[in-house]
Nucleic acid binder design. Structure first.
Lengths: 198, 198
DNA sequence: GACACTATGATTAGAAA
DNA sequence: ATTTCTAATCATAGTGT
């Protein structure tokens, strides 16, 4: 088969789907057989997200990004100073609840090393300040809502529920970022439960 | 072949190496044939890093990490519950620039709406608390730092230079995070330069 | 670790649902 | 976008250098 981008749009679609399956399968096999840790993120031509990770996508990414979530040196300048900006709760309790259910980037936290955690913490404080600032300013101006498609769940159609997949793949942690789910308890591949997104 | 972790250490080593090659090849094929964007990170049993990305590992990761419009449906309730802010032009250019230039996980920030920003802010606070808690806990446990091997270039041996590989793989952007390089100008696969890692 | 070799079991392209 | 089916192709485990 010629190694160049396929012209036929339909065939491309099919090929992508199959290829992705094969790719993910290979990835999981590598994890199972060799105990390797893998993070695999795929964006379809249609911009849909597919991911696979062992033990978990974010954990691997963090490890890849290590040492420390502050990849660029310029950021390091901020590590020294700055204390935590006091932010009072306001009436955001309910918001917290909602957010708690969907915080994607917090899940890998308990697997970070102490050093990473410390850096992470500092970085968070810095970021929070910036965000707070942005929020305040945004309050004054009404940023037009970009097309929200809030109820769109790209990729959700692929594996709506891992347990419903016809041929149970040994894949686990097969997710898309908008609708994460861990296909634990899979035949032949059950890994320790991942911490819930608190 | 039985799908469980291999016992023979030697065979495992070989299998990993082969499997990784195959996996990366598949990944690149998916990119070439279907124009998919892929990030693939693999940690060998020996903790060595191997990565592949199209157009680039970090770009894909960022896209993966970038929270599109907060996608959870339950979130909607809160978004609706919030009043809309008033219009007012304010210059955030410098702030945006600063953020864009420094915090990788903040990059998507300027694309968030006010409502999203507020949630983001709350989320940060929540997260920060968790981090602080974990840090404190970690302080007491003194979690041993995993060997950092900061100046080690694992994986560099695999594909020292793509151009030197006997059978030129169609792989590109085969990197390890400590020694990044883009194998642009590859026969049959040259992609436009990706944004530098600011 | 990478590479050569080879039988065979696994994977895929293509068409179609 | 995924799946089924099939024939043909390909990738790989095991062994050895």
């Amino acid at each position: 088969m010629e190694m160049k981008k396929m012209s036929n749009e339909t065939n491309l679609q099919v090929t992508f789907s199959k290829g992705r399956s094969g790719l993910f399968k290979k990835a999981s096999e590598l994890c199972i057989l060799c105990g390797a840790d893998v993070a695999l993120i795929v964006f379809s031509p249609g911009e849909k997200v597919f991911s696979f990770g062992h033990p978990n996508v974010d954990v691997v990414i963090d490890r890849y990004l290590a040492p420390g979530p502050l990849p660029n040196s310029s950021t390091m300048h901020f590590i020294e100073a700055h204390r935590i900006a006091n932010v009072r709760g306001e009436d955001l309790a309910h918001l917290k609840k909602a957010i708690r259910a969907q915080l994607w980037w917090a899940s890998p936290i308990e697997e970070m090393t102490r050093a990473q955690l410390e850096q992470y913490k500092v970085a968070l404080e810095e970021l929070k300040k910036r965000v707070a600032c942005l929020v305040d300013r945004a309050m004054l101006q009404s940023i037009p809502n970009p097309t929200h498609q809030l109820f769109l769940f790209p990729g959700a159609s692929s594996f709506p529920n891992p347990n419903l997949v016809h041929q149970p793949p040994m894949l686990h942690n097969y997710t898309n970022r908008h609708h994460r789910f861990n296909n634990m308890g899979f035949p032949g591949y059950g890994y320790g439960s991942t911490a819930a997104f608190f």
